[in-house]
């Protein structure tokens, strides 16, 4: 054990005296246009979180749960922006009709996929930790604590300020993974690997939705 301790000292010495002066400045000074506490946005997230937990806990019936989840999504999320974001550059090339079809499918897809994924987070305690705003973007940081004793999970909410103190949810990050970003990467992969054929993407999404309907 003595030599292992010596080894740790060896690495520590490298860190402190050789490489530390070269380390980039972590935690740089923030820009002046960042607001560090946005109570209204935190309240908005609190409201969404409470409603999601209520849906997951109160509704055993899958169709009721999905209907309530759809209402919540339409009311609180910026679905149009999410739709455009997840299509990347292809949003500029498709027709309005195709976009409308995609938007409708995406909504159903989100409800079916995330209602399932969120099931793992039902009946847990969500604590709002902090919030930051830059221009129209607000990040609200929260923590989910599990009754089972499992390690807490950090959940970030990305809101867009539509009008002063009026918000819409754009994306959610669990442990650093943004969900809209994940969908965007996946959808663009399908489009890029199929010469941008939009029908193929729509069929893939339809297939996923039908798989869920069949369950």
């Amino acid at each position: 054990m003595r030599s292992s301790i010596a080894f740790c000292y060896f690495l520590s010495a490298i860190g402190l005296f050789v490489l530390l002066p070269l380390a980039p400045q972590l935690g740089q000074a923030q820009g002046a246009d960042i607001i560090n506490h946005v109570p209204q946005a935190e309240a908005y997230v609190r409201q969404i979180a409470d409603e999601v937990i209520d849906i997951l806990v109160a509704s055993d019936d899958k169709s009721v749960r999905e209907a309530r989840f759809r209402d919540l999504l339409r009311e609180k999320a910026d679905l149009r922006r999410i739709g455009r974001f997840t299509l990347g550059r292809f949003a500029r090339t498709i027709s309005k009709e195709d976009f409308a079809t995609y938007q409708s499918l995406l909504e159903t897809f989100i409800i079916k996929v995330y209602a399932n994924r969120l099931g793992a987070y039902s009946n847990q305690k969500i604590t709002i930790l902090s919030s930051q705003q830059k221009n129209r973007n607000i990040i609200v940081k929260s923590r989910i604590e599990f009754a089972t004793g499992r390690d807490p999970v950090i959940l970030d909410w990305w809101l867009i300020e539509d009008k002063p103190a009026t918000y819409k949810l754009f994306d959610v990050s669990i442990l650093g993974i943004w969900m809209a970003q994940e969908q965007r990467a996946t959808f663009l992969s399908v489009l890029n690997n199929n010469q941008g054929n939009f029908d193929i993407l729509l069929n893939h999404i339809r297939q996923q939705v039908e798989n869920h309907l069949a369950e």
Partner: peptide, 28 residues
Amino acid sequence: TSVDYYATIRSFYRQSRAAEIANQEMDI
């Protein structure tokens, strides 16, 4: 639930590595 499982895992990996490097601190 993935439309393209490979692409989803690729996105998950890259995002989670970026988050680990940033010590799970989101930089607005």
